[in-house]
Amino acid sequence: MINTAKTYFYPSLTITAQGGLSDEKLSDFFNTSTLFGNIIGGLTQPIFNKGLNKQRLEIAKAQQQEYLATLKKTLLTAGNEVSNALYDYEAASEKITIRTQQLLFLQKSVDYTKALLKYTANTNYTDVLTSEQSLLAAQLSSISDRLQQLQAVVDLYRSLGGGWR
């Protein structure tokens, strides 16, 4: 658009089908005043429209800066979305790793509590139920962690430009 605005500073010579005719008489066909007036008008028009041409150029430059700023903002937003999605995925993956260890230890706790119930009188069935309840809560949290990881994958796919219609 800037190059188009710069072309208004140059003189223009237009060729039309009229050919300088302002009358329909054949005697005025070669009248140099109308032909010369059209040529001089086309060559001097940029001089008289200099303020308008400068304004067009400044508007084009401002629009170019606006489009560049919009592009930069779009790129920063896209990068931020990708970064956030990657972070969410990594965090969910770490939670799954830790939760897997927690599930293993809670399963051992349930097994040991049941063994204690069989062999000693110091424990009761409430302790077994409490340890099983903790295991169940951890299993539900594990499912939630997996859901967060899958949502992070979907967000990453969407932020990289994928999607559905």
Rank of each mutant, 00 (worst) to 15 (best):
L116V: 02
L136W: 07
L106G: 01
A17R: 10
Y10P: 02
A5H: 03
L129Y: 05
N31M: 03
A121D: 13
Y67R: 06
N122H: 07
N84Y: 04
Q148R: 08
I59L: 06
G51R: 03
Y157K: 00
Y112T: 12
T32W: 03
L117E: 00
R56S: 06
Q18H: 12
L116H: 06
T100K: 06
T113M: 10
Q65N: 09
L136R: 07
P46A: 06
L140G: 06
Q55C: 10
G51F: 10
N49H: 04
Q64C: 07
P46Y: 01
N84Q: 13
A138W: 07
M1R: 02
N31W: 12
Y157C: 00
L43I: 01
L71F: 14
N3A: 14
V154N: 14
N3F: 08
Q107R: 07
T14S: 13
A69L: 11
D155G: 08
T126A: 14
F36G: 03
I2S: 01
L140R: 04
D23C: 04
A91H: 00
G163F: 02
M1F: 09
S83K: 12
L129D: 15
L103A: 00
Q139S: 12
S109F: 05
I47L: 12
R56Y: 12
S142V: 01
Y10I: 02
S33I: 13
L43H: 08
Y87H: 05
W164C: 02
A78G: 14
V82Q: 00
G162H: 06
Q133R: 08
Q101H: 13
S83I: 05
N53H: 12
G79M: 00
K114F: 15
L75E: 14
Q139H: 03
L76I: 13
E90K: 14
L76N: 11
D23R: 02
E90I: 01
Q151C: 04
G161H: 01
G20N: 02
T97M: 05
G41R: 04
Q133Y: 09
F30K: 04
K114C: 14
A69N: 15
Y119R: 02
D145T: 05
Q55D: 15
T126W: 09
A115M: 08
R158M: 10
T14K: 07
L135I: 01
N80C: 02
L160Y: 09
L116S: 02
Q63M: 13
A78Y: 10
Q102L: 04
Y10S: 11
I40V: 13
E58I: 09
I40A: 15
N122S: 13
I47E: 08
E81M: 12
L117F: 07
T123I: 07
V110H: 00
T100I: 01
D23F: 14
E66K: 12
K95T: 15
K6S: 05
L52M: 08
Q64M: 10
G41T: 12
I96R: 08
N80V: 00
